[in-house]
Design a protein around this nucleic acid. Structure first.
Ligand SMILES: [Zn+2]
Ligand SMILES: [Zn+2]
Ligand SMILES: [Zn+2]
Ligand SMILES: [Zn+2]
Lengths: 136, 136
DNA sequence: AGGGACATTATGTTATAACATAACTTGTGA
DNA sequence: TCACAAGTTATGTTATAACATAATGTCCCT
């Protein structure tokens, strides 16, 4: 039921539907899972979902998890910035914790500089087990 | 803690072919690109390539790049360990530089601990431009 | 103001490309 | 004959190309 976006133009219907699906989900969803979930609200084909996701990701309201081909709603404020985020993805329950850590980004810049590489975007995904799954 | 790899066992024919293809390539290759390249040497279907890749990745001789669904031959010694590697992937020419940096892994452990998350594997992929592409 | 002409943006639809694995069969050597 | 590598077929999963239509905005002319 989250609708408010500080950053940009108002969301279109499809964008709102996709964002709502992700916000209501307990964890990340694949594009096709979103599609299945929204079929009875008019979503019919992959491009509709992917186009909505493109916009939401560009605005920092949703993040793509590269290692599991899935999408998760942003958990932190001000993710439109280009700052490095760390995603801790539980291999058991697939729940995601989003962590902001400025130091990591600085470190990447430093090591990349040694390799004469200019960093535009950093992808950091930690695979492991969350506290809940370790306890059970 | 189990750290044994099958590195000392000889590679099978398909494994050798796939490793050779990746070693000869000037950048990462997708599984299907490898398949196409090896058709005239007997490779016929995706499972053959993926099974070879599974073994080479498990042994640390090849790395999977999650953000581009491609594979690259290891550029550093002793990658069978669980140490964190950083992959700098040029968005222009797709060439990859593999960087070892122990500090980053320690940092991940620290921030994950704050979130009660136990890290098993770290994925770090930097997207940007290599020196050569920036110059041209 | 009102109404076309045009551009722009969002959406819908079909088809297919690209990536990955399940399931089964066959060969091969200890 | 048992295990395992390899081969084969089919299918599942993720993502985009290509084209068509609808909705919206913007301009100019009357
Ligand atoms: Zn975020
Ligand atoms: Zn968990
Ligand atoms: Zn390596
Ligand atoms: Zn380059």
């Amino acid at each position: 039921m989250i609708v408010s976006t500080q950053r940009d133009t108002a969301l279109t219907r499809n964008q709102s539907l996709v964002l709502e699906a992700l916000a209501d989900a307990k964890g990340p969803l694949t594009a096709y899972a979103i599609l299945d979930q929204l079929r009875d609200r008019g979503m019919r084909a992959p491009p509709q979902v992917y186009r909505a996701l493109d916009k939401l990701v560009a605005d920092g309201m949703v993040h793509r998890l590269e290692s599991i081909n899935a999408f998760v709603v942003c958990q932190l404020p001000d993710c439109g910035s280009r700052e490095t985020m760390i995603f801790a993805i539980c291999s058991d329950c697939s729940q995601v914790t989003e962590i902001r850590d400025g130091g990591v980004g600085d470190r990447f810049q430093a090591v990349a500089e040694q390799a004469a590489f200019s960093v535009h975007k950093s992808i950091v995904e930690l695979r492991g087990r969350c506290a809940h799954c370790r306890a059970s």
